[in-house]
Design a protein around this nucleic acid. Structure first.
Lengths: 179, 179
DNA sequence: TGTACATCAGTGAACGCGCGTTCACTGATGTAC
DNA sequence: TGTACATCAGTGAACGCGCGTTCACTGATGTAC
């Protein structure tokens, strides 16, 4: 007999597992409750509607990433080493989280969940890199931070598909950063 | 009274316009025929089913990109300049094509259309870059080509959203390539 | 200790809706004689 | 030139289905007296 919070987590876990196979667009409330082993009505005890649920999945995933990144760069000065540590923390968390592909890529162009909060989470993550790039003497630091974020997402998807870290991809990222 | 081929193109145009607003998962046959101004049955005169239609959209988009890239690099030796010209050709075609975001990003994780043919088109495009990177003395040329493709896709999405080329992003890409 | 009531996560049948797909049919155009 | 037939893009009503959401209800747990 799980408590309320455990049921909520079970639904989010079910969603993460399913989104990986069916994509964000193919994720249905029916599937989620079946996977989680609860009744359909239970879903609406915990989430207002489908869009809220997708947002909650994205929020949970990004919360984990953000926490890992914050911890990894704690006390480091802005610069090349700090931005690379950020990307490594992102990758290490992502590889352990199901649904990465859908949540980091597909979430961007799915308008069933309104882009606002999800876009804000992505931006917050990329914004930290701007300070590092400026400290490294980059012009166009904003544009560079966006491209580094894009590469990092790409590697996370490749690593998740591979099931393990891909050192060659990480080396390339390092070399792009000039380290 | 349009001929058969024009109706087919009209359906693909309608799909490209709609996918941009609603994402690939939110694209329905109903919407496409309404936008194109034809009866529902007409859709199935031209396409076996929805998945075939999505594949045809992807094929058309990638065909245009591939043709532009092939023309842009014609006669050039493998190397830094050639790979940068490729990415520029990709970007210049993408900015003029609706639905870029969905077709270049979302198509990747949508399993309603089986990944096979679409993934093959992406790989063919990225594969050309490997020779350039090897000529430039890169180790991990395959991994680097994937990341360059990811950055190029990112820029194409940003440019499409902006509605015009973004020189800062293109400069960053150039600098990453060491040119 | 026993009884009455409040709370709240969980249930599942029922709803209306839009989906993808089918199919018998239409009507314009081209070809044969 | 006129008639008969073939072709084929286009039509739209109809289908069964799974979707997201609602809601009256259950039943376990906690609290008050």
């Amino acid at each position: 007999m799980p408590g309320a919070l455990q049921t909520r987590e079970a639904l989010l876990d079910a969603g993460a597992a399913l989104v990986e196979q069916h994509g964000l667009g193919g994720l249905s409330v029916n599937m989620v409750v079946a996977q989680a082993g609860v009744a359909k009505g239970t879903f609406y005890v915990h989430f207002k509607d489908r869009a809220t649920f997708v947002d909650a999945m994205h929020k949970r995933f990004h919360g984990r990433v953000q926490a890992a990144v914050d911890e990894a760069v704690q006390g480091l000065e802005p610069g090349a080493e700090r931005i690379f540590r950020s990307t490594e923390a992102y990758l290490d968390v992502s590889i352990a989280n199901r649904g990465v592909k859908a949540l980091s890529l597909e979430a961007r162009s799915d308008p069933t969940v309104q882009g606002g909060p999800m876009a804000a989470r992505r931006e917050r993550l990329a914004a930290a890199g701007v300070a590092d790039l400026k400290a490294m003497g980059w012009e166009d630091a904003e544009a560079a931070a966006q491209l580094i974020a894009a590469m990092t997402r790409e590697i996370s998807v490749l690593e998740f598909d591979a099931g393990c870290p891909l050192p060659a991809s990480r080396r390339v990222l390092r070399r792009f950063l000039g380290i």
